[in-house]
Design a protein around this nucleic acid. Structure first.
Lengths: 246, 246
DNA sequence: TTGGTATAGTTGTCTATACCAATTATAGAG
DNA sequence: CTCTATAATTGGTATAGACAACTATACCAA
């Protein structure tokens, strides 16, 4: 295993622990490290790569948190079994979601207006009584057929200059730049229902069909909510996949 | 702030970094540290508590991962906004879930048998062609009224001595002891549907009502699947809540 | 007022070392 | 051969210190 340390560039602007993560991920993917087998010990890796053990440990900790590895005290660190279906957890946008499912997304803007939100929406967005929100309604298509109808609420104070054009692009980058905050966590609620008469037209399904309703509230890293999306999916076309991590 | 270091017991069997986590969580909860304000810097805390900075860092990193704090390079570490509704993410059992919702859970065993699973179930559990699974059907009540019908599949090889009595207790502890592995992550699929004729009886709802179907596959830390649960919830009583973490 | 610079304080990364706790390998006794 | 005590190996916890990257402020000069 000579020359292993050449794999790490200590002068690089990318942190060593990230380089090590990439290295390990590659070797797992190439099945150099096989499922269920243990990878080299932390001490071994630190010698081979000529970095300190604590740095190797940081890399491994991240991969353990990502579910690629698991540790057993006194035994070693092992490659975990890959999941059959990749969870679509991290995804937030309809576009990403559909692409990951191998379908071509498209959208049609139905409505864009500035309103005082319904009470429950205002409460979830932690707004004052008389605060305005943008209300956006869009039909979301996958492979040109309706998949969902999406109603989005964004506080005006978060992004006052929002308009019909900006809404079509990548909002998140704009919001991050404007608020000097990054997009943080989100909370989702999911329920089943019978489609409403109005939505059945938009979704092009008959009444008395089932729909999956997903309500997602997204937060900036400081915990301020900046978006609430209520999506109504055709149950015959859409299944939601997520992962529970321990 | 004299005597701060007495808050940490270095002789304790519980790691210092966990003690610090508790300390910080308490102070956040008691609003000694207010939302949006920065907590003392890592160096300050390490001096006050008489521990090394890296140990303080480990504690804070965990709280950041849990969403209680967020860091900004060059500025400090801040208290995040608490979420309005606590996600029920970590929960796996119906019992826990209902208790967390303030309802009283109960169950009725409908069926317990050993079968060769349907193809798709066997595939998800990564079984060979002729491998048996236990098949358990239970009605799940909340406050004495039907909430869901739950169909569970457990590979016989994972837990051969499973029987109708053991299924009522805490399976997970038994499985962990028997497999020398801990319970790891899980993958969930969620979809909406119209209730089947059979399930409508169990759930005591009329036909053509909506139900939320949750299919969860659970894995041991080494990635081996050990359980598949297919739950059909009454849409009029149940809403699923989860969190997306970044 | 504007722009630059020095400075102090913050988190981010990294090293080197030490000891603890759990597990496994090994040598030796019977 | 089996059992047992010991040693070696592994991940877990903790320390001390160093430098980098970034932020906020104060101050000075144009």
């Amino acid at each position: 295993m000579k020359g292993m340390k050449d794999l790490i560039d200590k002068e690089s602007r990318v942190p060593i622990y990230l380089q090590i993560e990439e290295l390990l991920k590659q070797r797992i993917y190439l099945e150099e490290f096989k499922i269920g087998e243990n990878i080299p010990s932390e001490r071994e890796l630190s010698e081979q790569l000529n970095v300190s053990r604590m740095t190797v440990r940081q890399s491994i900790t991240n991969l353990v948190n990502n579910g690629l590895l698991y540790r057993e005290k006194g035994r070693g660190t092992y490659v975990a079994n890959p999941k059959l279906e990749q969870p679509l957890n991290g995804l937030t946008s309809f576009t990403e979601d559909m692409r990951a499912r191998g379908m071509e997304p498209s959208s049609k803007l139905i409505n864009f207006e500035k309103i005082i939100p319904p009470f429950d929406i205002g409460r979830e967005l932690q707004l004052e009584e008389d605060e305005y929100v943008f209300h956006v309604i869009r039909i979301r298509n996958a492979d040109l057929k309706p998949m969902a109808i999406e109603r989005t609420y964004i506080p005006v104070k978060i992004f006052p200059e929002l308009d019909e054009k900006k809404i079509m692009g990548s909002l998140y980058a704009l919001i991050e730049a404007r608020s000097h905050q990054k997009i943080g966590n989100a909370i989702q609620q999911m329920e089943a229902a019978i489609v409403s008469k109005e939505d059945s037209k938009y979704l092009q399904i008959s009444t008395s069909q089932a729909v999956l309703i997903i309500k997602r509230t997204s937060f900036l890293t400081d915990g301020v909510p900046f978006e609430l999306v209520r999506s109504t999916y055709r149950a015959d076309r859409y299944k939601f996949i997520s992962e529970i991590k321990r």
